[in-house]
Design a protein around this nucleic acid. Structure first.
Ligand SMILES: [Zn+2]
Length: 307
DNA sequence: CGCATTTGACCAGCGC
DNA sequence: GCGCTGGTCAAATGCG
C-alpha cells in the first residue's frame, strides 16, 4: 500500500468512493469535492504552497468529517429499517427466522458477559482477516441471589463465528488452545450436535467453550467461549502476554463475507456497533476506500506535522 | 498403560 | 409435580 506516494490518486479515489456511496444526495459536498480535485491538479504541477496545502488538507479533513456523519446517518437508517423488518417478520411468522437466535430460556450464569477470550476487543481489521467474531454482550439480569460470593470469577462469554468446511464433521475450532471434550448434546432447534470443551489446563483454567454448527449455514461453526484463560496461550514463547494466542488464534480467514452473521441484535447500541463493524469491514474490502483512507490519514499527518 | 474421546446417565432450571 | 431442555459427569471405549 503506497500511501504517501499516491496522494493525488487517493484523492481521486476519494471522489469516486464518495460519489458511489452517497449518490445525488449531498450536492454541497460534490461541489467541495470538485474543488479538491482542482487542487489535486495544483499538486501535480508541484506548486508547493504550504498555506494552500494546509487549507486544502483542512478541507479534506472536513470532507472526511462529513462523510463520517453521513455514514452515521446511514447507520441509523439501516438500523431503523432492520428493526422495522424484524418487527414485520416477527409479526408474520413468530416462529421462524431470527437467524439462530439463541432463545435462551435458561438463565445464564449471572456473571458479566464481555469480550473475546483473547482479550482482543478491538476491531480485527488489524489482523487483516476479518473473521466474524461477535461479542455477545447480554444484559446481565442480575437476580438478587448471589450473596457475596467470589466476584472475581467473572465468566466472560463471547461468540465467535468460524467459517469451516461443512464436510468437516469434527466440531473443532482451531484457536490455538488445547481443549478437552467433555460432552456432546443434540439441541432442540439445530440438527447438528453441540460439543462441549474445557481448556486442557483445567481445573486451573476455567475456560469452557461450546461449538455447534450453525443451523442456517452448515459451513459456519459457532463457538461460544466462556471465561478467560489464566495462562499464556499456545505460543507463549513470544512473551507477549497481552495478546494471548496472538496471531494464531482463530485463523479462520474470510471464506465468508458473513454479512448476516451478526444480525441478531436486540439493543440499539450493540446493533449499531455491529453495523459499524460490518460497514467497516465491507469498506476495508474496497481497495478504493482503503486508498482514500490512506490519503486521508497521510493528509492528517501532514497537517499535524506542519502545525 | 496413560490419556483423550465417546456417550448414556444424571442434574438443575424453567414453563406449564 | 411433570416434562423438556441444556449442561455436566463418568464409565466405557479407542488410540498411541
Ligand atoms: Zn486455558
Amino acid at each position: 500500500m503506497d500511501c504517501s506516494s499516491s496522494l493525488d490518486i487517493s484523492l481521486n479515489l476519494n471522489i469516486n468512493a464518495f460519489d458511489r456511496s452517497f449518490p445525488a444526495k449531498l450536492p454541497e459536498e460534490e461541489v467541495k469535492v470538485s474543488t479538491s480535485a482542482g487542487v489535486e491538479r495544483k499538486w501535480l504541477v508541484k506548486e508547493k504552497s504550504a498555506s494552500e496545502l494546509r487549507e486544502e488538507l483542512n478541507r479534506v479533513y472536513s470532507e472526511n468529517k462529513k462523510i463520517k456523519e453521513t455514514l452515521e446517518t446511514v447507520c441509523e437508517k439501516y438500523y431503523a429499517l432492520h428493526h422495522h423488518l424484524e418487527k414485520l417478520q416477527s409479526r408474520k411468522s413468530p416462529g421462524i427466522d431470527h437467524i439462530e437466535q439463541p432463545t435462551k430460556k435458561r438463565k445464564q450464569d449471572p456473571a458479566d458477559f464481555l469480550g473475546f477470550p483473547n482479550g482482543k476487543t478491538e476491531n480485527s481489521s488489524s489482523n487483516q482477516d476479518h473473521h466474524h467474531q461477535q461479542y455477545e454482550q447480554k444484559n446481565q439480569l442480575l437476580s438478587c441471589k448471589r450473596p457475596i460470593t467470589d466476584s472475581f470469577n467473572k465468566a466472560k462469554v463471547s461468540t465467535v463465528y468460524v467459517p469451516a468446511d461443512s464436510s468437516d464433521t469434527s466440531l473443532t475450532v482451531k484457536d490455538g488452545y488445547q481443549w478437552r471434550k467433555y460432552g456432546q448434546k443434540v439441541t432442540r432447534d439445530n440438527p447438528s450436535p453441540r460439543a462441549y470443551f474445557r481448556c486442557s489446563f483445567a481445573p486451573s483454567c476455567p475456560v469452557k467453550k461450546k461449538v455447534q454448527r450453525s443451523a442456517e449455514d452448515p459451513s459456519i461453526l459457532v463457538a461460544t467461549y466462556e471465561g478467560t484463560h489464566n495462562h499464556l496461550g499456545p505460543n507463549a514463547s513470544e512473551g507477549d502476554a497481552t495478546s494471548q494466542g496472538g496471531s494464531s488464534t482463530v485463523t479462520l480467514d474470510m471464506v465468508h463475507g458473513g454479512q448476516r452473521l451478526a444480525l441478531e441484535k436486540n439493543e440499539r447500541g450493540t446493533m449499531q456497533e455491529v453495523l459499524v463493524q460490518q460497514m467497516a469491514s465491507s469498506l476495508t474490502n474496497d481497495s478504493n476506500f482503503t486508498a482514500a483512507l490512506a490519503a486521508a490519514i497521510t493528509g492528517r499527518l501532514m497537517e499535524q506535522s506542519r502545525t
